[in-house]
């Protein structure tokens, strides 16, 4: 995938929820794109629609939630549009997803090895046992895990939170998807582990040229990792642009208020990734 090519495009995406007889707007006319080799941060308060946005791409919306208008395109093909929903073909294959609570996103009854082989066998046609083994080890190495064999043979509860999150990321990228979506995936981690995970994501994006949609409420984290940032409020993208620009020269009040709410935020102090 060439760098700079649009991988994911959300075009005037409107999502509603049916509650009782009413239709609630969860997302209104969202325009956003993620290019190969790019990290796009989606920030905003809880309830601003970040998670709805992330989950709409993999088709994991609640039963009463539906795409009302607009479309989602993945590598130029319509993934979700009027009368179309191909998210089930993309999940795990061309889109990987990492969730909020990594420690609980692994099946407690299954070893890490089984998690990986399950995904590989599902998505890589005709893959043999040796290749499953090789790719499992390789992807853990890529996650900067020093002793992949021990981790492969472990159950989730035998691993630290940081390791579990790396395994979760490994599961999202082992099938070589074009796009990875991370939904608040560092929230449950301590600051040091957060920094490691962020560095890991940067590495993956730079080396594999994947696109990363990074959903977070943590502006500091977003400023460390993201190339561009979309600010969401009440279901709308109110501001989108290069990280520096959005964080240093916000154009809407909402972004300024978000920034003001971050402790010790001084303008220009962060946003080191230009």
């Amino acid at each position: 995938m060439a760098r700079g090519e649009a991988l994911l495009e959300l075009r005037s995406l409107t999502i509603t929820a049916s509650v009782a007889d009413r239709q609630l707007l969860l997302l209104r006319d969202v325009e956003l794109e993620v290019r190969a080799g790019e990290v796009v941060g989606v920030v905003g308060e809880s309830g601003s629609g970040k998670t709805t946005l992330a989950r709409s791409v993999v088709g994991l919306l609640e039963r009463n939630v539906q795409v009302a208008t607009g479309r989602i395109e993945l590598v130029g093909e319509v993934l979700v549009g009027p009368g179309t929903d191909l998210t089930h073909t993309a999940r795990g294959r061309s889109v990987g997803m990492v969730f909020q609570d990594a420690s609980r996103s692994l099946n407690p009854l299954m070893r890490v090895r089984r998690h990986l082989s399950e995904v590989l066998e599902r998505h890589v046609d005709g893959i043999g046992r040796d290749e499953v083994r090789a790719r499992s080890t390789e992807v853990l190495r890529r996650m900067r895990i020093d002793d992949p064999d021990r981790v492969l043979d472990s159950y989730p509860h035998q691993l630290s939170g940081g390791l579990r999150q790396r395994v979760a990321i490994a599961l999202a990228v082992v099938t070589n998807p074009a796009l990875v979506i991370a939904d608040e995936c560092t929230t449950a981690l301590d600051v040091t582990t957060q920094a490691e995970v962020v560095a890991l994501f940067r590495e993956l994006v730079d080396e594999l040229h994947i696109g990363l949609l990074f959903v977070t409420h943590d502006l500091m984290l977003a400023s460390d990792l993201c190339d561009r940032i979309a600010v969401m409020s009440q279901g709308e993208v109110v501001e989108v642009g290069p990280t520096d620009q959005v964080l240093r020269h916000p154009t809407v009040d909402y972004t300024r208020r978000l920034l003001a709410a971050v402790p010790h935020w001084t303008e220009g102090a962060s946003a080191t990734h230009a």
Binding site: R91, G96, R104, S105, N107
Partner: peptide, 15 residues
């Protein structure tokens, strides 16, 4: 959450 993530990995509904 591990059910959601299993779905997100594109596994068959049966699995």
């Amino acid at each position: 959450p591990y059910i959601d993530s299993a779905r997100a990995r594109g596994l068959r509904v049966r699995s």
